[in-house]
């Protein structure tokens, strides 16, 4: 998680000169599978982005065109007329931001305790954190539905946000932050304690600022997870004006199954924010994912 640039010189990278002394020509066979794979990995995004700007006649045209004949934004205005597209965007943003705040707060508090505080039962507790990572969501969703029904929370955003303040589904984040905290030398906290800083002050003024890269990683993963979440909103929301983008798009698809141009406009609105986030902050995602495998 340190800010070394792994791109520059991977320790184990196979030195090509050993295997490919005959020069760079030998690299070409490696590019063939890469280019083919990259084509199929990128195709859905290209197909979506171009489709969003195609006129209806072009959508149903055979053979299909790759680039739209001319850029028209009609699909976007049409999609926004058919369903409350911009409203869904706002709803998604609200739910994702609030649940991200909750996750970062709860996971960092728990991780701080696991990393620095000794107590009887702490190993059992950490075992429980790891065990909850394996739980399939179905086993919790059915009874949770009844709980939220009883609390009167159905068709509100509370079931989509409040559990994140209580660390539900956040085991991976606790694990990740604890690993990071363990890397901060204990002496820093000792020094702060001698200066009279309490544990909450140590957490807020020392641990959190030092853990910024890890906190950003956690925030990004939770934001994207919440943004992409389909199951929660599908079950807990019924009023279509409260939908987030994934359920909104599913709803839209149900209404206009083959109106691909408008559908692509809606999916573009949903996908572009995460796409930009990914392109800007890719290294955090890579480091976060690589950390998961590290314990394997």
């Amino acid at each position: 998680m340190t800010s070394t640039a792994p791109e520059r010189g991977p320790r184990g990278a196979a030195p090509l000169r050993l295997t490919l002394t005959r020069g760079r020509v030998a690299l070409v066979p490696l590019y063939v599978p890469l280019v083919i794979a990259a084509f199929f990995f990128a195709l859905p995004f290209a197909w979506m982005l171009t489709g969003a700007f195609k006129a209806p006649s072009e959508i149903t045209h055979y053979p299909p065109t790759f680039l739209p004949e001319r850029l028209n934004a009609d699909n976007f205005t049409q999609a926004a007329d058919d369903v409350s597209l911009w409203r869904y965007l706002g709803n998604s943003l609200l739910v994702a931001v609030v649940s991200t705040v909750g996750t970062v707060l709860c996971a960092s508090l728990a991780a701080f305790a696991f990393a620095y505080l000794r107590a009887r039962g702490s190993r059992v507790m950490f075992g429980l954190v790891l065990a909850t990572m394996m739980l399939p969501p179905f086993i919790l969703l059915i009874p949770s539905y009844s709980i939220y029904q009883w609390l009167g929370w159905l068709d509100t955003y509370l079931p989509l946000t409040v559990p994140h303040f209580l660390g539900v589904g956040g085991a991976f984040y606790i694990f990740l932050l604890r690993q990071f905290f363990l890397g901060i030398p204990r002496e820093i906290f000792e020094a702060a304690r001698i200066d009279g800083a309490g544990r909450l002050r140590q957490y807020a003024t020392i641990a959190l600022p030092l853990a910024k890269p890890a906190l950003i990683t956690v925030a990004l993963f939770q934001f994207v997870a919440s943004w992409n979440d389909f199951f929660g909103p599908l079950i807990f929301l019924t009023d279509s004006s409260k939908f987030t983008l994934p359920v909104g798009i599913r709803f839209f698809q149900g209404l206009y199954a083959t109106d691909y141009g408008n559908l692509m406009a809606a999916t573009t609105v949903s996908v572009v924010p995460v796409l930009l986030l990914f392109l800007v902050a890719q290294r955090f995602f890579v480091q976060g994912i690589a950390t998961t495998g590290g314990k394997g």
């Binding site: 990995f41 999916t267 949903s270 796409l275």
Partner: peptide, 23 residues
């Protein structure tokens, strides 16, 4: 290439399933 291969893991979900349904 790493970016291209990693992208669909993060940018995923219902919108992309709808795109695939069209493809």
């Amino acid at each position: 290439f790493r970016t291209v291969f990693f992208l669909p893991t993060i940018v995923t979900g219902v919108p992309m399933f709808v795109v695939w349904a069209w493809m």
